[in-house]
Amino acid sequence: MQFYALCRRSVISGLCGFAFLFLGGCGAVDSGDGSSEGTDAAADTAADVSTASVEPLSIGAIPDQDPEMLQRLYSRLVDYLSAELGVPVEYEPVTDYAAAVTAFKVGDLDLVWFGGLTGVQARLQVPGAQAIVQRDIDESFHSIFIANTASGLEPIDDISGLKSLMGKTFTFGSESSTSGRLMPQFFLKEAGVALTDFKGEPGFSASHDATLKLVEAGSFDAGVVNEQVWLDRVAAGEVDEGKVLAIWQTPPYYNYYWLVNADKLNAEYGEGFTDKVQTALLNLNASDPQQAEILELFGAEKFIETENDNYAEIEAIGREIGKINE
């Protein structure tokens, strides 16, 4: 019966797609598990677990590294969470930082994997929002300043060495990236380098990989990327080390974490639900092959606890730089 329904749906969608090309119809009802379809798949799985009348738990993420793996990552996670929590879970694809923060604020995303800064931005707009879990590596996260070898920039020993970037062209990553913008800008400021000290305006490449390539190309003399991405790309041999070199590793700071809309979820699924979510995430175990895959996709050995107070520094810097206006 289900098989029959599936066939019929694909036939309809195929016919409609065909009709469009020639006549201007438009592809119609389609099943599947692609982009927004990831949601369908999630909802389907969830339906097995719980009754359909329960509002699904919406999870989201801001893609910061390897985002084309998001699909795989999140369908695994959706399966795991819905099984653990006993409620339907769905994944909403959002690729813009500001969009994810806004969606969290208006209550369309309940559990989001945020970067340090965006997490604070989101938390400040939602009373009762809680940082619950982060990866082992997020406790002491670093950014790496990189430079093109032809720029004449040399590796530096301490923060004051950042002064050598004055008069060079420089690019950040995405505007609200913690590791690609906020913390680097903070350290630059500490070193006494203002954004106006660069040659021209600093660029905003929109992603770590783009920063890496633009510096490798020499279009910008220097840039800054997330350490995880840097190490990953170097290990994969995707970085031409004859052209780009790491010049400085920043001091550690807190980064990525799961932020949950605690008040809303506790009201919707019962008191203590937030704790269940936290426990479920903390329980992800590398010895289970399915769960190990989730951890691997996140680039983590394990998840650990975190709390709102850990991000006080990021909040302060965010205010200083003008990225937080609450």
Binding site: S35, S36, P63, Q65, D66, P67, E68, L70, E92, P93, V94, T95, D96, A99, A103, A206, S207, D209, A210, K213
Partner: peptide, 24 residues
């Protein structure tokens, strides 16, 4: 518009762009 959760080809393209998967 795919970037803001509208899905579609734009969403896929911007995902691939972020990690610079040119083939994709």
């Amino acid at each position: 518009l795919g970037v803001i959760g509208a899905g579609g080809v734009g969403y896929q393209i911007f995902l691939s762009l972020q990690s610079l998967r040119y083939e994709q």
